[in-house]
Design a protein around this nucleic acid. Sequence first.
DNA 1: TCTGTTTGTTTAAACGTTTAAACAGTTTAA
DNA 2: TTAAACTGTTTAAACGTTTAAACAAACAGA
Lengths: 334, 334
Amino acid sequence: MKKVLLRDVAEKAGVSIAMVSYVLNGQKTDRINKDTAQRIRNAVEELNYRPNFLAQSLKLKKTFSLGFIAADIANTFSSQLARIISDEADQAGYALIIGSSDESKPRFERLINQLLNRQVDGLILAAPEGSDELIKALQDRKIPLVLIDRYFPELSVSSVSVNNYQASFDAMSQLMKDGRKKIGILVYDTTLHHLNERVRGAQDSIIHSDSVSYECHSIQEDLIEQEVPAAIAAMLNEGVDAIYFTSNKLGIAGMRYLMNHQITVPTQVSTLFFDETEVFDFYPSPLPFIRQPLADMGKKAVELLFKQMNDATLPAEACVLETSLVQSHLNVDQ
Amino acid sequence: MKKVLLRDVAEKAGVSIAMVSYVLNGQKTDRINKDTAQRIRNAVEELNYRPNFLAQSLKLKKTFSLGFIAADIANTFSSQLARIISDEADQAGYALIIGSSDESKPRFERLINQLLNRQVDGLILAAPEGSDELIKALQDRKIPLVLIDRYFPELSVSSVSVNNYQASFDAMSQLMKDGRKKIGILVYDTTLHHLNERVRGAQDSIIHSDSVSYECHSIQEDLIEQEVPAAIAAMLNEGVDAIYFTSNKLGIAGMRYLMNHQITVPTQVSTLFFDETEVFDFYPSPLPFIRQPLADMGKKAVELLFKQMNDATLPAEACVLETSLVQSHLNVDQ
DNA sequence: TCTGTTTGTTTAAACGTTTAAACAGTTTAA
DNA sequence: TTAAACTGTTTAAACGTTTAAACAAACAGA
């Protein structure tokens, strides 16, 4: 079962391979004889010819594939994003190669090199901590590139993100309006700007009111299962009456602790999550959370990327999308 | 910022491009002058040369990439599998291109063609309903291929799956041992063999005991949100005291219904799930489930695929892995 | 001195496409 | 009648690698 080549089609149709190529690519249609064209199309059909993508790409210097490096593809946030980006790319005739850095900078760098070796036409990146110079270097090499979720304020690179500061600010206002007096904030110990913005927004909001206080606990990403329980225990000890989880993984670890210790929400302590997960469905009470517009983010990222691919001289564009504060996940459709 | 080519390196080192290629690929090491080799390596380093993957692949007729088509990448089962397969491929120096058929056969076919056009070296497929002839055709074309999760008993293709029948059989035995008398089974209305095996195993198990009865409800995949509530309502009406959800999506939809109607588990009705999800963490009582050995499945699939890629004449190998019945997800690590 | 071997390197074809340029034959315009 | 323009098709170079084969120089054995 040999591979069918352009040459085989040409032979069968009794023409040169150039003719087959022209017909297949719809070029010189005004010049080519209708009968010949039809003969070629028939041969293509009969032999079930499929062009070799590698050869095409090599010649055209375009692979019609995009790369997406997620922060952690096992995380719902990433996988849903991947799904949307994949669909968008697909619709435009592009394939998507997905990688997961697992928040490791060396791994991130390796993946980028892999993708570039494979000559992807553009990159969508959820960049891990400390990867700013790396991103800068890519930009200097004029590689079409869009950051998603995370971004570096000192870098002028196209990006899609949400209003982390405002979202947190508003969420805390809501908690205070609900009468919470002492708010605990859980965040990663990180330099990632978007996460710190979440904390800053929360703090600024709480500072406005002098009857409410807060305490902020930093968690090492790789020690979630140890440090989150400790932090929550400490908070509860301090009389915290609301906890703000600034990421979904922190939230899940936190809720697991609360459940294991029979601490009920919102009666004993109330909670607020950044990001939505299916797990909320299984908790007996509504759990309010900040929803990111995943679909819009993915679509916008692909859109910005295509823009750049079409015109490398275009200036960077930072797109900031609005989040929404959702009171409950339950009973939405029943 | 022009791309650095083999030619540029050769020029810089004052040798032919063949020499550079030989040095880079570690060939003819006994012949090549040590100094020349070093000079070439220096030039490679200084110019930061990266080989063009397309050109390499075209020449070598090998792309060092695998394709994985998931049933639904937004489903935890698929995304975790993707993660494992991706890691395994990565370790072997292969990239993974991921697609999601969303259980649609036409989409599945399109994805396969895309992947083959891109000359992937092998495929790992979670095949949707009715795709048996398609798989057969691929096999006839001698395309290295491993089925995962789903398989077709009438086809002799390499596959990795779990003991669906036995898992269900044992799970039902456990429910009966716990005193359940009337068991409801929820399954998709499908011809997918692995799902039907789950039902068959359950039925065979229950039939053994004449004091226990069961009823089985078939759900249309695209109407889950309507049909699952209806089925559960009907079951409860019939006095069912245990429900077996044969897939995680069915389980989640089912639990959402139970929660919205304040029906508690296991006091009012007990449950059993095929597949594990993070959502179980958030339910106040332990929820028993059948666990599939995801990591083993992914690893085995990659292993079988590599085997085939290395020797196309090898016979198909069906690998059936053992599941485990887990009583509770909670308190495992605290 | 001649032949054969070893060492170090280059030449050139190949992988499967795309496409500018060339070509031959026919028609049109002056 | 001759040149210009058009029609339909082919030729051949290019994309960036790999690698078999050829080559040249140095050396060894007779």
